[in-house]
């Protein structure tokens, strides 16, 4: 039986102020796979993720997530977690407090699940320091924890390894592999080709708003 697609993007085009930010993009995302997107800064990777997340209205084409057309039936997709741009938390509160406040908006998970997510990214949930005292790497880990804590079926991570040390990168790689095993569809963007090739089942390249498949991971 064919697995149902988590995301279907058809001929997605976005023009802002005369600039074509996304150009005729087609992409299908299946559960339990990691999709890596390589591209330099400004190539359109983040814009593509923002379109999937519902932050951007397509000029042409469509984005369908879990069977719902984004911007029509649903303004924003359900069952998804994201780390886009730099993690933005309330700087005066601890990591645990920040995630508790965010989790309270949907009210779907327990404190135990929040603690588990924080531990999974290698942070200490008992750390009482305010986020403003966190290093860039710790903020990044907390950003990943907020993305995975509600156990999403679709995970969008834009440059998730930014600021992480070697140990941190290894930990997050293992975490992403484990989430893939659990059936989570993962979209990963990075300017680091080696990292994307190492982790992804399918590798794409983004250049001036155009997406092209590089090759299947098996053949790399």
């Amino acid at each position: 039986m064919m697995e149902e697609s988590v995301v279907i993007i058809r001929k997605l085009t976005k023009v802002i102020g005369g600039h074509t930010i996304l150009n005729q993009i087609d992409l299908e995302v299946k559960p339990g796979r990691i999709y890596g997107i390589i591209g330099h800064n400004g190539s359109g990777k983040s814009m593509l993720f923002k379109a999937i997340a519902g932050y951007l209205r397509p000029t042409k084409g469509e984005v369908i997530v879990f069977g719902e057309k984004i911007g029509e039936k649903a303004k924003f997709p359900k069952h998804f977690g994201a780390l886009i741009e730099h993690p933005g938390f309330l700087p005066q509160y601890s990591g645990m407090r920040n995630l508790k406040l965010l989790a309270a908006i949907k009210n779907e998970i327990t404190d135990e699940e929040i603690k588990e997510a924080i531990t999974q990214v290698g942070l200490d949930w008992q750390d009482k320091r305010p986020v403003k005292k966190y290093s860039l790497g710790m903020k990044q880990r907390l950003g990943i924890a907020q993305a995975i804590m509600e156990k999403p079926k679709l995970l969008i991570l834009d440059e998730p390894m930014n600021g992480l040390d070697k140990q941190g990168v290894k930990l997050i790689h293992n975490l992403l592999r484990s989430l893939r095993e659990q059936g989570v569809a993962i979209l990963l963007a990075s300017h680091n080709r080696d990292e994307i090739v190492q982790l992804s089942d399918e590798v794409y390249e983004m250049d001036r708003g155009m997406l092209s498949e590089v090759c299947e991971q098996e053949s790399i």
Binding site: A53, G54, Y55, K75, P77, F80, P87, G88, F89, I105
Partner: peptide, 18 residues
């Protein structure tokens, strides 16, 4: 400032409505 720097990326999808 905190909200528009990036905080909204976390809050808007969770509340599901602009």
């Amino acid at each position: 400032d905190q909200e528009i720097r990036n905080g909204f990326f976390y809050t808007i999808p969770r509340v599901g409505s602009l």
